Computed example of a mutant assay.
Amino acid sequence: MEELDMPHNILMPRIMEVGGGALDRLPGVLAALGVQRPLIVTDRMMMELGYVDRAQGLLRDVGMVSDVFADTVPEPTERSITAGVEKMRQGLANGQGFDSVVAIGGGSPIDSAKAIGVLAHFGGEIRDYKFPHQADQSGLPLIAIPTTAGTGSECTRFTIITDDTVDEKMLCVGVGFMPTAAIVDYELSLSVPARVTADTGIDALTHAIEAYVSRKANGFSDQQALAAMRLIGPNLRIVYHEPDNRAAREAMMLGASLAGLAFSSASVALVHGMSRPIGAFFHVPHGLSNAMLLPAVTRYSIEAAQQRYATCARAIGAANAANSDAAAVRLLVRELLALNTELEVPGPAAYGISRDKWQAALDTMAEQALASGSPGNNPRVPDAGQIVALYETVWHQRM
Rank of each mutant, 00 (worst) to 15 (best):
A70V: 01
A198G: 10
E75K: 04
S354E: 12
D222Q: 11
P27D: 09
M365N: 13
D199Q: 07
K87F: 05
A315T: 06
V73H: 08
V52D: 02
L231G: 00
Y186A: 03
L171A: 14
Q90T: 14
G107R: 01
H207A: 06
T147N: 02
T197S: 15
G201P: 01
L258F: 14
G20K: 10
G106M: 10
I81H: 02
H121F: 15
G373Q: 04
G201M: 07
A32P: 00
S301V: 08
M253R: 00
P346G: 11
P379T: 09
L254C: 03
R330N: 14
N320Q: 08
V345M: 13
G106Q: 09
T151S: 14
A366V: 01
D24V: 06
S108P: 03
S112R: 07
L33N: 04
S275T: 12
Q223P: 04
E86L: 11
G373A: 10
E210M: 10
H241W: 06
S221R: 05
H396K: 11
S257P: 03
A194L: 06
P109E: 03
A327L: 11
I110Y: 13
L39T: 06
Q306R: 15
T393Q: 15
G152Q: 06
Q306F: 02
V73W: 00
D136I: 08
A217I: 00
V329D: 03
H283E: 15
G152T: 09
N9T: 12
F158P: 00
T197V: 07
V196I: 15
G105Y: 04
I104E: 00
C155Q: 03
L140V: 11
Q397W: 05
A305I: 07
S374P: 00
F282S: 06
I302Y: 02
V101S: 00
A315E: 12
F281K: 13
K357F: 12
I232V: 09
T77D: 03
T72Y: 02
A31S: 14
L236K: 02
D199H: 13
S153R: 06
L370F: 10
S354G: 12
I183M: 09
A70R: 07
L33R: 09
L343C: 11
G347P: 07
A217E: 00
Q90L: 13
T151Y: 08
S301D: 14
F158Y: 15
L39W: 01
H396Q: 14
A251S: 15
L30E: 05
L188V: 03
A211H: 11
V118Y: 13
A259F: 11
A204V: 09
A115I: 10
L190V: 10
G260V: 07
Y300H: 09
P375G: 06
A269I: 01
T364R: 12
R60W: 07
E367A: 15
N320L: 06
I302W: 03
A228Y: 09
G287Y: 03
D5Q: 12
E367L: 10
L332H: 10
R25A: 13
P38E: 04
M64T: 08
E75A: 11
V184D: 05
L140H: 11
T151G: 05
Y300V: 00
Q137R: 15
D222M: 08
T364E: 12
G287F: 07
R299L: 08
G57P: 04
L171C: 11
E86R: 14
S264Y: 05
N340R: 15
G117W: 09
